[in-house]
Design a binder for these strands. Structure first.
Length: 327
DNA sequence: ATCGTAACGGTTGAT
DNA sequence: ACATCAACCGTTACG
């Protein structure tokens, strides 16, 4: 159950599982400081292949999050089918799943290969159509079908994919004002970000992974990643980890920094100070040890990370001024 | 020396 | 409740 391993660089990883978000975050941030990928790889002890992948993904999606793991895209349960099922159920709340199935076939909504199984239908009834009273919101607007049982934690603000595939480099191209707050990368207040993140992650590590699903429920001619992302987030049953954070993250503490200066004053955003400090706080946080244990274990390498920085700085000295100053 | 990428062994989760 | 299986994971190695 604990498949934690050590790579060639001495870094800890869990085979088959995504790198912890804290590390993903640092990869992107170091890159934004102008540090070369190969150096990031060595310093964070993450394979350069992985660094490359994460940075590439970040450049085109704007998110540091891993893709959606597992599951399968609906083969029969298309939005259209769900809509019809909802209608049937609404018209006749006492209808049986097998009756719905028959009707789907009779009404030509599905052919016999397209046809959902009875258990599928009942699952849809259970999960996607809980309350039959109000449901029109989903069709027209962008509201959750069933109200979020828990306060919606605004981690979307930190991790969501931007509406366009436009990379959000230091220059930071502008997006519609109302979604400016969604732009994730911010060189500003790393502490704030990590602070929020720790709370966020306390809530559920797995949830982040799930809602980060980019195109999982993506049907042909579907909408933007952003929409899908938020949709998915709202549609999640998410009854698994109902761990409530003691304090709620304040959206306001996240300050949007529209631009990232070419160079920072090293003291301003110093990986050495900033990261080790914030990260250790992040790691040793009170309620940090959650259920999803295995994925968190690599965080323990945070302890060793400062050492990595030190040795690097000692070794390479003035070879790469940028790197050196950043360290 | 760097970096993109495919093979590989692994996990996940909707169907 | 259980099995599939296609999605993704990070590492490794090659070019």
């Amino acid at each position: 159950l604990d498949q934690t391993q050590v790579n060639q660089l001495g870094g800890v990883f869990v085979n088959g599982r995504p790198l912890p978000n804290a590390i993903r975050l640092r990869i992107v941030e170091l890159a934004q400081l102008g540090i070369r990928p190969c150096d990031i790889s060595r310093q964070l002890r993450v394979s350069h292949g992985c660094v490359s992948k994460i940075l590439a993904r970040y450049n085109e999606t704007g998110s540091i999050l891993p893709g959606a793991i597992g599951g399968s895209k609906p083969r029969v349960t298309t939005p259209t089918v769900v809509k019809h099922i909802r209608t049937y159920k609404q018209r006749d709340p006492g209808i049986f799943a097998w009756e719905i199935r028959d009707r789907l076939l009779a009404d030509g909504v599905c052919d016999k290969f397209n046809l959902p199984s009875v258990s599928s239908i009942s699952r849809i009834l259970r999960n996607k159509i809980g309350n039959l009273s109000q449901q029109s919101q989903y069709e027209s607007g962008k509201q959750a079908p069933h109200p979020p049982p828990q306060p919606t934690i605004p981690y979307n603000h930190l991790y969501s994919y931007p509406a366009s595939k436009v990379p959000t480099p230091p220059g930071m191209p502008t997006l519609p004002g109302h979604m400016m707050h969604r732009i994730w990368p911010s060189s500003h207040s790393v502490t704030d970000i990590l602070g929020i993140r720790s709370i966020t992650e306390q809530q559920s590590n797995a949830k982040l992974e799930e809602w980060s699903a980019i195109n999982r429920s993506n049907f042909p001619a579907s909408s933007s990643p952003l929409v899908n992302g938020t949709d998915k987030a709202h549609l999640e049953p998410e009854a698994k980890y109902t761990q409530m954070p003691n304090g709620l993250p304040t959206v306001n503490s996240y300050v949007t920094a529209p631009s990232i200066p070419p160079y920072h004053h090293p003291t301003q955003v110093s990986p050495y100070m900033g990261y080790s400090a914030t990260t250790s706080a992040y790691v040793t946080g009170p309620t940090w040890q959650l259920a999803s244990g295995s994925a968190l274990s690599p965080h323990s390498c945070d302890i060793t990370t400062p050492l990595a920085f030190k040795s690097m700085a000692a070794n390479r000295d003035s070879i790469h001024p940028v790197t050196a100053s950043a360290l």
